[in-house]
Design a binder for these strands. Structure first.
Lengths: 209, 209
DNA sequence: GGACAGGTTTGCGTAGCGTGCAAGATCGAC
DNA sequence: GTCGATCTTGCACGCTACGCAAACCTGTCC
């Protein structure tokens, strides 16, 4: 056979090399999260993070552009799950109904293992300079989501505004629910808060009675 | 008279001192925008910006935390106008209707003098690292907006979710309209795009026919 | 106009950030 | 085992960002 050209085989996707990279990456993220949670972002240097992960500083910068990237590098929504859920949703659902479902599923996933997200959010509200970075992470999700909504509705997301609007608004609502959940000390269920927000959205955000 | 204590008079708000500060600040912003538009963010140093504004580098950092701040420092929505419009809107309007009005007014204001915003947006899409910063700038507006909506609806924006949701979603829609307007080369009227988006929102974002 | 208090600018020093480069180590395929 | 590709590392360098203290400017009171 040998269909694969000699030079076009980056890695087996689960080769030793790839595994090592994943280990290094998560080691750096873990070290960053731990140290920053202890002392605050500005009181931790890249050198310390690198040392804690047993790599050189130069290697740190091969993985992340900066300290902030390492802390938020785990990210909390991948967008992947959301978009596949959108594709698999029954076709009779409207786009917004499908998005609502996907977001609720995401919320449930978070609630099954909230510790990591809570740690990240706690760091974030002690470190205002992280917020832009966190928001930027959501941007990628929003782009994917817009494309998926476009696919679902048969609209070209680059010319028609609807898919992009749905994506922007949905991510905003998601974020709002997550922040509210966190601010309230996770007293209320994230799933409920999320459903409440998307319920408001679905009826056009009229004044509450 | 002499009601004012000796130490409690920071500045006349329009004293020579305050005017000089404003001049320096805008000189720095102008220099930053001009140089970055010419060469790109990474190809301009703080030293050059400072020199162009006739101040020392140290002074630059007295005004801005970093280069990005200087470029986006002008910001494009102040939030002030929006919130006062909200307060002055006829009380029979629903919160969303009032927000819609305010946002449309803001759009019209932009269209009367689009050059500055267009320049900023052009820089931004040649410099992806600026986007987080730009979006973060909208955060302040969102907070003000939430408070204003809370006032209007009689809800406490720190406990009730509705005002925050309206603010988050509205800012998202605003941003979406602005980006779309800019991506389309300002071919469509921003006001129209804005109204379209808020129209979708008002009816719960159903699938387009 | 002189003097004082508080605010602003500046230069200096310094720790840390972020990247290009080239040498060496490691891995994958044959 | 060998060879190419990839990853790690040290080194060097310029830029960023801030603390500090001296010099300077502004507003106010007498």
């Amino acid at each position: 056979m040998a269909v694969t050209p000699p030079t076009e085989r980056p890695a087996n996707a689960d080769s030793l090399r790839e595994r090592k990279k994943r280990v290094t990456r998560t080691a750096l993220i873990d070290a960053a999260l731990r140290l920053v949670a202890e002392r605050g972002l500005t009181q931790v240097t890249v050198e310390e993070i690198s040392a804690a992960a047993n790599v050189s500083v130069r290697t740190f910068f091969n993985y992340f552009r900066n300290k902030e990237d390492a802390v938020t590098g785990g990210g909390f929504i991948t967008g992947e799950r959301v978009t596949t859920m959108l594709r698999d949703a029954p076709p009779e659902l409207s786009a917004m109904a499908a998005v609502r479902r996907a977001m609720l599923a995401e919320a449930q996933a978070v609630e099954e293992n909230p510790a990591e997200l809570v740690r990240l959010l706690s760091i974030a509200d002690q470190t205002p300079s992280l917020k832009p970075q966190l928001i930027a992470a959501g941007e990628a999700v929003q782009r994917d989501l817009a494309a998926a909504v476009g696919e679902r509705t048969g609209l070209d997301s680059s010319t028609d505004g609807y898919p992009g609007l749905v994506a922007a608004v949905s991510v905003a609502a998601f974020r709002h629910a997550v922040f509210r959940w966190h601010e309230g000390g996770q007293a209320h269920s994230l799933t409920e808060l999320m459903d409440e927000d998307f319920g408001h959205l679905a009826v056009g955000l009229p004044d509450p009675a």
